[in-house]
Design a protein around this nucleic acid. Structure first.
Lengths: 213, 213
DNA sequence: TATCTTCAGTGATCCAGATCACATTCAGAA
DNA sequence: TTCTGAATGTGATCTGGATCACTGAAGATA
């Protein structure tokens, strides 16, 4: 098992030098989450940051009334920028994280994290890159919700899902999509039907088969 | 002049140790911008990050068609998180920055910036805090546009303006508000009129006087 | 004082998307 | 096979907000 995630660490975090990989293995806590399992709720306090080793996570912004708005995915080789800042400041998480597939993560304690900033150039670079990529993803999400209509947002949603899950067959119900875009199921069903008529995709029960998006 | 912004640096960035303040003064480039002047356009490349010393900035996300969506304000004592990551990675700015009032900023070259990360604990803390606060602000903006209707978004907009500008008299036209919320002038005029009838504010030409928001 | 420009008020109309009310279909449990 | 619950299809209706077409009012400028 040790050997297994060691390999995954090397593969997914190629910029890290050998010594850093060793440190991560020794100080980090390795955890596995099942599909749909929630890793982190809004309001929960964090003592460590998360590196995604395998699988896939979805990061949601939650409203008071319980709506879950999809912000972005976290893929292997990525880390949660919010857990970095919140852990560093002993603050509560402003978001919810849920596993899409079975997912392995490495939890790195906050103190260790800030030590490495000075000790490993590659860690510093990685943290900067993490902030940048999460900010960029969030800006894309903001663009969509601020400037685009629902059909464009749905197309963007499906492209993102395809890219994150490396498949043309997205396994999800219309209701779930509606929740994650904060709209209603009927709207999603009707828009999907239109896209099917245009030959952009094919609809099956619980599966959307993407064709020419 | 040297003495003047020196004092402002000390006042607005109280966490910085004396040595760091000195370094900032010697390596940073001090610049002043006039009201409505644009500091940074979307797509422009950055070689340095910006610390706001006095005045006020607005940060916008721009659409292809030229719409300007307000993300958040930058106040004295704050820095642009995006200029930090983009400068560090020699990338183009994803946002536009405009001066609200006459604004003094200190431009710090990217190389210097990353040196300080290891050299000054207070700088490291400041950078982390900058990422956190900008992420939080962006999440608030996202909440509004994702979950709230226009009247609530307008109320939030006005509260933010009041807090950033330290005044109950917001000097702005309905058209400008509409642009920054990506809606139309008529909608803003009608909603403001309703709020006036409820006694929440008073309307004057180019000025909105806030009362009980 | 006359004129011009920008800002604001307001009715009419339109449309995307929300909501309600059902019908239908499908996969798994019994 | 039959039943049941979840997923999907679809019409009818409602509404917030967009758009169009004006009018009027306040400063700025000559």
């Amino acid at each position: 098992m040790q050997q297994q995630y060691d390999n995954h660490l090397r593969t997914n975090f190629p910029v890290f030098e050998k010594e850093l990989i060793d440190e991560i293995e020794h100080t980090g806590e390795f955890r596995t989450f099942m599909p749909d399992e929630i890793l982190m709720r809004k309001g929960q306090f964090m003592r460590s940051t998360m590196l995604v080793i395998s699988g896939l996570l979805k990061i949601y912004r939650e409203d008071e009334d319980g709506s879950e708005f999809l912000m972005y995915y976290l893929k292997p080789g990525e880390a949660c920028a919010l857990s970095m800042v919140c852990a560093a400041r002993h603050e509560a998480s402003p978001v919810m994280a849920k596993a899409v597939a079975e997912t392995e993560v490495m939890m790195v304690p906050v103190d260790t994290m800030s030590e490495w900033m000075a000790k490993y150039k590659s860690w510093y670079q990685f943290v900067i890159e993490t902030y940048r990529s999460r900010f960029d993803e969030l800006l894309l999400t903001l663009d969509n919700v601020a400037f685009r209509s629902m059909d464009e947002r749905l197309a963007f949603y499906l492209k993102r899902a395809k890219e994150a899950q490396h498949t043309n067959n997205i396994e999800i119900s219309h209701q779930e999509i509606a929740n994650e875009l904060n709209t209603s199921r009927e709207v999603i069903s009707r828009l999907l039907k239109k896209m099917e008529q245009k030959g952009m995709l094919a609809l099956h029960r619980n599966v959307i088969e993407l064709k020419n998006l």
